[in-house]
Design a protein around this nucleic acid. Structure first.
Lengths: 143, 143
DNA sequence: CAAAAAACATGATATTAATCATATTTAGGA
DNA sequence: TCCTAAATATGATTAATATCATGTTTTTTG
């Protein structure tokens, strides 16, 4: 459902939200260790997120990655879409090209209500919402 | 969420349910054409399903694949599990190893109620249930 | 019993996703 | 200004899926 890349990206963005800002940047290597993601892969992912302006970065000594307040208001789905593309989550679970409400596949009615709800939630919850839950110890990140 | 193999398997099993029985078998090649799945891949998949006794087969002239009544009562989830394994659908969407109700990942509460419902439905609906919907033109298979 | 038609078993190739590696660019500090 | 520390760009490798191909076994039928 989510690629590894999306999972890693979500973890990283959340970690950055909790631990960085413009004055407290963090290197790819350190982030990768904290959230248990292979370091070279993490670096590449963070670079991609920075290029698409989901997170921010500066080069050179004292440089690193961080996230600024406006980006903390992005939704979970925005992060996922940047990595996996828009259609992946919404495509027919039986792989039929033209499956829709008027011409549904056999499992459409089984899958779709739940999935639509899930997607709606991912589109409404922001990074910041999740970060708050983390601060309150209502949810957890490691492993 | 589902591998291509699972999607193809589901389509094939449904097709067999509608069009075959012990006296009306069908060759891999013909099934593959009907449901738009690459023929060699279809053959391999059908052989696997037959070995695990999800469907039946006989060799030689007039041979082919078919499904018998008792197998039509298998659930959708059983088909999926035979191909993708049990855990794939239930694993944490953030990829955390020990995510659970007591120590949930940040998106656990967003995802899980919907997903649990989806899984419960896949575990309760049988091949036969879907075949009935197909017969009544309530749902569709092609492409 | 021989030939042909089918599934079966096995392995080869291709494609995609995940992971690793490294030379280049940029910025800070001595 | 020069050195160093960081991200960046790019590409190589590995691993997992998906796909293709083919020789072997079984069964029907002439």
């Amino acid at each position: 459902m989510l690629s590894n890349s999306s999972k890693y990206a979500l973890k990283a963005v959340l970690y950055l939200t909790l631990h960085t800002d413009e004055n407290n940047k963090m290197m790819a290597k350190d982030i990768s260790e904290k959230i248990s993601v292979p370091k070279a892969y993490m670096a590449k992912l963070l670079q991609g997120l920075a290029k698409r302006e989901i997170i921010s970065s500066t080069k050179g000594p004292k440089g690193g990655f961080y996230i600024n307040p406006s980006n903390k208001n992005r939704t979970i789905m925005e992060i996922i879409e940047v990595i996996d593309g828009k259609k992946k989550m919404e495509s027919c679970m039986m792989g039929l090209k033209d499956c829709n409400e008027h011409k549904p596949c056999p499992i459409h009615s089984i899958i779709n209500p739940s999935r639509s709800k899930m997607i709606a939630l991912l589109e409404s919850k922001t990074i910041n919402d999740l970060a708050k839950d983390l601060k309150l110890n209502k949810v957890f990140l490691p492993s």
